[in-house]
């Protein structure tokens, strides 16, 4: 017999070991996320995928589904909290979309559209992390980092290079590259690495491909992220 849980009032079937996120997606329900990636184990840092189960908040990317769970996701309460988490990410970095090559293809921005975030609400922290342009093909704009660690994980687990790591902690946490000089150009990083192509925001960028697709015609200009993300599921 298929086992099910309730997702926003609708039955969702799941298999053993599936998380709420995986089962909900398989059933066609979009849950916002930034650090989650289908090819990697759950990370659970961005907290955009929070849902409420039996009155408690949990990360849907990490919690295994259980028979009879009642999951609330697309509710005004949870979406307001998700919007506030996005606002936190916006104020801690420097997300000046009009000058960012990732604009329109950026998942942070796309989720802000999805959740109707019109302002960052809180006071901006205005970080000052220098850009690294030392690599011949790639550019690092650290001020846009959301600490999803997808590049860290991809470089470590797939590319087997461990080019990236996070250091320091709290609000001072930041991305570093694996070189004594601290420069990407002094690592064996390559534009073909998975880590070079996995950043959901505009930190890790290719040089010399700026604005090949005009603003206004990019992925999330055309369709909302809830749609784009679920098309990938099919």
């Amino acid at each position: 017999m298929t086992r099910r849980f309730m997702f926003d009032g609708q039955p969702v079937a799941f298999e053993d070991g599936q998380t709420i996120m995986e089962a909900a997606r398989a059933a066609g329900h979009f849950i916002p996320y930034l650090c989650w990636h289908p090819d990697f184990p759950p990370h659970g840092s961005c907290k955009l995928c929070i849902v409420k189960v039996g009155g408690r908040h949990v990360s849907s990317c990490a919690l295994p589904a259980k028979e009879g769970m009642e999951v609330e996701s697309n509710t005004p309460e949870i979406n307001a909290e998700r919007r506030a988490l996005l606002q936190m990410l916006f104020v801690e970095g420097n997300h000046f979309c009009p000058s960012c090559e990732k604009s329109g293809n950026c998942q942070l921005q796309a989720l802000a559209y999805e959740l109707e975030m019109t302002s960052a609400r809180f006071n901006h922290i205005f970080p000052d992390r220098p850009v690294d342009a030392s690599h011949p093909d790639m550019l690092l704009e650290f001020n846009r980092c959301i600490f999803c660690e997808l590049c860290v994980r991809a470089s470590r687990d797939v590319d087997k290079k461990s080019v990236f790591s996070l250091t320091n902690r709290g609000i001072h946490k930041h991305l570093v590259v694996s070189a004594e000089s601290g420069r990407l150009g002094d690592t064996d990083f390559s534009r073909d690495d998975l880590a070079a192509n996995i950043c959901p925001v505009g930190v890790i960028l290719r040089k010399r491909v700026g604005f090949a697709v005009p603003i206004g015609q990019r992925i999330y200009d055309e369709k909302p992220i809830s749609q784009v993300s679920m098309e990938a599921e099919k």
């Binding site: 936190m88 990410l89 104020v91 600490f147 709290g170």
Partner: peptide, 21 residues
């Protein structure tokens, strides 16, 4: 708490800092 947050998750990393603000 702002000093001791490990900075892993968004709400604690940014929230403790905002609260301090």
């Amino acid at each position: 708490f702002a000093h001791e947050s490990c900075g892993f998750c968004t709400p604690c990393r940014v929230g403790t800092s905002l609260l301090k603000g």
